[in-house]
Structure formats: structure tokens, C-alpha cells
Amino acid sequence: MTRDPLSLSIDGLKLGQKFWALISFLCLLAYLVISIYPFLWMISSALKDNREVLTNTSLIPKEIHWEILVDVWNRLDFWQYFLNSLMISVPIVIGTVIIYSLAGYGFSVTKFWGKEFLYVFFMGLIVVPTIVVLVPLVQELRAFGLIGRDASKFATYVGLIIPAINGGGPWAIFLFRSYFDSLPRDLRDAARIDGCTEWGVYARIYLPLAIPAIATVGITNFISSWNAYVFPSVVINNPDWYTLPLQLRFLDMQTVVQWNVRMAGSLITVLPVIIAFIFLQRYYIRGLTAAAVK
């Protein structure tokens, strides 16, 4: 019986509301087209002749070149670099979620000396310029033996993963804390009275409820670490350890940039992200439902 703002259900609404419903539907549709266009462009360019990519603005190729995709797939040695990328991105996501959901809980629920100051400090880190931290980071990694021509694959990846976790930290803290703040405090108080420890409240009540926040933090960090280019290119010295985006650079070793090859490579690289995204999105929607029921 509720009549909500900008409702999309047409039944039993006045004419004006029908009008607005139509307008909002059309706007959503237009937005949908704009959202999907570059993605379609990527697919269409991967199927075009190289010259056509830059000179034919139509989405439909004059002639479909499947062989580009097949050729790129074969040359990319996909599984090796896919595994490399996975070995970096998955620990980053897991580490980020664990460490910063803990921190988010600490900042949201518990009390300790200097909490607010520490929180504001972390928030300040969001706006610290990241552009010139590469050099000192590499010096540190060197001091820890995590970089260099003699570092093992494991050490190199650790050197990639931990700074990336730290880099995503302030945002994750912020999102987790905001999310935990939105949960009713009675939940925690009741559990504490029932004899649940602080750790128990976090692990058994707050964390399961935080699936939407976990999904948001997870998706964001997965995408950014999967697509990362500059930092991995600085840290990794052995071509066998390259991630997918790094390896992609070597597909077009021609005199001229092969745009179609590049697009085919991009398509293959983002494919895992899209699959992971669809997979995570289910949890995300389920989490939303859980949060709405509370």
C-alpha cells in the first residue's frame, strides 16, 4: 500500500505518475545503452580489421575476424598468466577484507584510547597523494628482500600484495565502519549480555551481516588489483611471473600498434573479472536482502 517516490509500478497510479514512470524508465534505458556501449565497442574492435578499429566508428565490423581472438588466446598463454594474476589478486582481496573488517569493527563498536584520532588519521590517508610513493616503497621492499633479480616468485608476490592491501586500507576501513555503524547497536549489546565476547560479536554476528560491505570492498579491490599495471611492472623482474595486463603488452610486437589485438587481449583479461563480478554480485544482492530484513 505504499506509494514510493518515482515508483515504477504503473497500476493504479494517476496520469502524472504514469508520465514520470515512463520518463524514468526511458532515462534508465538510455543510461543502460551508454553503460554497455564501450563494452560492446571492446568486443566489436576485437573482431575488426586493425585499420577499421580507428577509422570505422560503427559497432558492426565490416567483416568479422574471429581469428584475432583465437590467435591472441593462443599467443597469450592465458592460463599461466591468469594463475599469476589470481595469485596476486585473491590474497589482496582476502587480506583487505579480513584486516579492514576487523579495523572497521574496532572503530565502529569498541572503545579505546585515541580511537577517534586514529580514525581521522586513516581517513586523512585517503587524500594523501599516491603518485610519488613508488620509489620509497621499492626501497623498503628491497630492504625486506622482497624485490630484485634475486627475489623468489613468492617473495616478489608478497612484495606486491602487502603494499596493495595497505593502499586499499583507508577506503575499506571507511566502508566497513560506515556499514557497522548502520547496524543497530542493540544487536551487539544483547549479545554481550548473553556472554558473547567482543571477538564473538564480530565473527558470529557482525561479519555475517557485513556481506554487502564485503562484496563492495572485495569487488573494488579485486578489479583494481587485477588491472594494476605500473606497480606490478616496477616490482616484477621475471617475465614468467608477469600478470595478465603486463603480458598483454607483448601481444603487439609489430611496427604498428595492433588495436584489434589489444582489444582482444583486453577482452580476454577482463573476462575473469566479469565472471567473478557476476558471481560476487549474487552474494551482494543476497547480502542486501539480509541487511534489509535485519
Binding site: I99, G106, F107, T110, F122, I162, Y202
Partner: peptide, 12 residues
């Protein structure tokens, strides 16, 4: 409660 925040502080 600081213990919850400690890993984040440490890594920073």
C-alpha cells in the same frame, strides 16, 4: 578494542 585495529595499524 585496539586489538581489532592493530593489524591495520601495523601494516600501515
Amino acid at each position: 578494542g585496539f586489538l581489532f585495529v592493530a593489524p591495520a595499524v601495523l601494516i600501515f
